[in-house]
Structure formats: structure tokens, C-alpha cells
Design a protein around this nucleic acid. Structure first.
Lengths: 228, 228
DNA sequence: GACATGGTTGGCAGGCTGCCAAGATTCGCT
DNA sequence: AGCGAATCTTGGCAGCCTGCCAACCATGTC
């Protein structure tokens, strides 16, 4: 008499188009993870919101963390979406202005998603999450190098990459000050970011000294790029 | 005959100095949370590492999240520690240089703790965590205003706060490029940060237009959005 | 129409967290 | 010193959550 495994009653009555289910789960997960934290959201909720059985989550995505990684990856995708083709403009300044305007426009449209994406940073030190976010930032940096007309990103010295990554961090913080704290307006952020970059890649970048041969702190070896 | 609750055998045989236990738990939690993520660390581990019973965690700190908040609060404390007294120096530039050097020195000393603290950003959207980190950044910003000799922070316009918060975000990103990716050296970060701030509070800050009476950005719907 | 294939479900085992009652220990008061 | 109160400390219990698995059921193929 059914020793331990009860018979699953009415099992699969609804089968939708392949990954229609998959998208449903991803959407529900994105929604829930956006408004609440990772560990506050139970897979049971996600399954209920998506209208599927909980076990299906493990079937499509592996574990709960894998699902989260997928959500973050999807959230980050739109960052590279809106500026795929080259921004045309005569001078680098014009192209930069256009890029910043597009960036702010995109952020304004996807306010919640963007805040959630950069807020998702944590989850402790998940290497996959970190890799996804890092790749997105790195791509933005490379695109910025191209926009500025500084040649292919691969040829740029590491110091320039570092400066532009730092600029990216500043842009994120500045955007947060606009979206979350309302300390200045969109026009003000835009004006500040547009004016800041030339100063940074100009004066501040020139102030960086040559890398000495010996460096006291090392995680790995340093290829030593010749800059400028 | 003891209906449901078994008698706790040898209960409290060791009672150490009041909050000695508390500190032990905090230390173990800090260590474990630093190397692994929040949800990867079980309170059982923390208790084992601290050498206490698991229930004691709930006695001293409330829930696991409360303990985490306390850990982050402690990690962030050292940020305000090393520069409490006024930095003396003739010119604002000299004081700024000194502040940046101290900042980098502190980060270099507490590399792991600092990376963990800013990496702890996430945990979803915990309001307490966000508040703790935000308070630390805000304090750093206010101190920076004083260092620059721009008068009391309370009197500064919100745009200046925003600019300095953005600068703080840049400093964090630049530091990460140094500590995690090794794209430049400590001297280079220092030189860049020292050269960047005058440019930002000078030229870029001046480029910010006056705030219009109506501001277009609202949390919810999009009133009109006139873009340039 | 029978069979293979893969989507879908419910349930089970293990682990983890919050809470609680019960000893143990220290302290204050008379 | 003796006694009671307050607090520290422990182990265990109930509930929830996650990963996994066997079984059920649609769909496609021959």
C-alpha cells in the first residue's frame, strides 16, 4: 500500500511552450529578488508567483543560487544593450555627451532594475555574481575608451583602465545620489559627469607617476605596461 | 516523566567575563562572514568557532541578521577611527594629501576587512545594512568638506555633498582596482586621487547648472521628461 | 498504436533558524 | 553568612526551506 512514495496525483496537465515556463520563473524571481533580499525570498514563493511547482526551478536552473546568478545576468544585460552601435559625433566630447545622456536615460527608464542590479553586489562574496558585474563594468569601460577615441581597449595601458573604472564607480555613486537621495537633478548629474571625465583623463591621469619596477604589494605578478 | 523537555544536563559551567562571550561571537562571525557569504555561514558554525552554544547567539544578538548588522557596523567603525582629529596642514591641498595617505594606509592595513565591508553592500536590500554603510560614507563626506576648508558640512549645498559622495564612490572603485586587480600601485592611486579632487570640486562642480524650481524626477510615474 | 523522450509534479530527507524552558552562576540585600 | 533575584548558558523542539528523486503525463517518432 504505497510504502513511502505517495503517488503524484494529477501531474503534468499544462505544458507550455518550452522555455515559456523558464521565462515565467525568471520573471517572478527577478520581481521578488528586486524588492526583497536574496535570503528573504523562498523558492516556494517564486514557484507560486510563477505558477509552477517548486521542483521545476531545480529542473531548469540548478540551485537557488544559480537562479539568482541568472537573474543578475539578465538584469545586467540591458546595460550593454542601449549603446551597441557606435555613437556618431564629430568630436570625442560630443560622443561622450551623447553616451552620458543615453546612460542616464536608460537608468531613468529601468530605475528599479538598475538599483537592484548594483545593489545585488553582495550576497557575500559569490564569485559568479562578482564576475557577472565585473564583466559588465569592464565592457562599459572598454566602450568608453572607444567613445573617447583612445583606440582599441586592449591596447590601453592598465592605468587608463583603472582611471575609467574609477570614473565608472563615480558615475554609479552620482547616479545613486540622483535616484535615491534626490540631492541633484538629472541635468546636474549629466553636467557634472560630462565635465568630470575630461578633467580626469586629462589632468589627473597625467599626474599619475610611472610605475616603479618594484611594487610592494602584489596579488600576482605585474606585466608592467608602458603607458602614455 | 519529563513529558517533552529533556533536562539540560550539565548546563552553564563556564561563565566568562560578561561580554567576553559577546566579543568571541562577534569575532568568529566577522571571520566567517568575511571569507564566505552571508547565507553560506550557518549560526552553528559561528557558535562552534566561538566555542559557545548556538542559542547564545540569539541571546546576545537577536537574529542572525541582527548579528550580521552588528558585524558590518563593527567593520565600518574603523573607517572613522584613523582620522578623528583634524589634519593639520597649511593649505587645503596639504591636508587633502595627508587624508588620502591615511586613508590608503588604513585600507592597506585592513585589506580583508575593508573589502568585506564594501562587499557586504548587498544582502539584498537590507535597510539596516544600507543605513550603516550610508552613515559611514556620509561621515567621510562631511569630514572631507572640513578638510577642504569649505566650512561646516551642514551648510554646504546638496550639490556639493553629491559631488563628494561621487568622489567617494570613485575612491572606492580606484582602491578596488589597486587591491583586487592590481592595475596600478598605491602611489599611483594616491596621485590620481589627489589630483582628481581639485579638478572635480573646481571645474566640474562649477559646470553644474542651477537647480530648476521643478525637478522632473519622481519615484513613480514619469510626469513629462523633457530631455534637452 | 507502441515506444522513447523529456517536461512536470509532489513528497522526502537533511539542514538551519528562532524560540523556550530549565540548570548554573553571580550579585545584592539583610 | 544566608537567601532570593537577576542573568548567563545550554540543549532541544517546532517550523521552514532547499536539494533531490521517483513517478506521472504530454508529445513526437516509427
Amino acid at each position: 500500500m504505497a510504502a513511502r512514495t505517495a503517488v503524484p496525483a494529477g501531474a503534468a496537465g499544462n505544458r507550455t511552450d518550452g522555455d515559456e515556463r523558464r521565462r515565467r520563473i525568471l520573471g517572478a524571481a527577478r520581481r521578488l529578488f528586486s524588492e526583497r533580499g536574496y535570503s528573504d525570498v523562498a523558492t516556494t514563493e517564486i514557484a507560486a508567483e510563477a505558477g509552477v511547482a517548486r521542483g521545476l526551478i531545480n529542473h531548469y536552473f540548478g540551485t537557488k543560487r544559480d537562479l539568482y546568478v541568472e537573474v543578475v545576468r539578465e538584469m545586467v544585460r540591458f546595460r550593454s544593450q542601449p549603446v551597441p552601435e557606435y555613437v556618431d559625433g564629430a568630436t570625442p566630447e560630443a560622443r561622450l555627451d551623447e553616451s552620458i545622456d543615453r546612460w542616464l536615460e536608460m537608468v531613468a527608464r529601468n530605475r528599479e532594475a538598475w538599483l537592484a542590479a548594483i545593489g545585488a553586489e553582495g550576497l557575500g562574496h559569490d564569485p559568479e555574481i562578482a564576475a557577472v558585474l565585473d564583466a559588465a563594468r569592464e565592457e562599459a569601460t572598454s566602450r568608453l575608451i572607444q567613445v573617447l577615441g583612445l583606440g582599441p581597449a586592449a591596447d590601453a595601458p592598465p592605468e587608463l583602465h583603472a582611471v575609467l573604472r574609477a570614473y565608472g564607480g563615480m558615475a554609479e555613486a552620482a547616479t545613486r545620489e540622483w535616484l535615491e537621495r534626490d540631492r541633484w537633478s538629472r541635468e546636474q548629474v549629466a553636467a557634472f559627469l560630462k565635465a568630470a571625465l575630461p578633467e580626469l583623463v586629462g589632468t589627473a591621469y597625467e599626474a599619475i607617476p610611472e610605475q616603479r619596477a618594484d611594487n610592494e604589494h602584489q596579488t600576482a605578478a605585474e606585466p608592467q605596461g608602458d603607458r602614455r
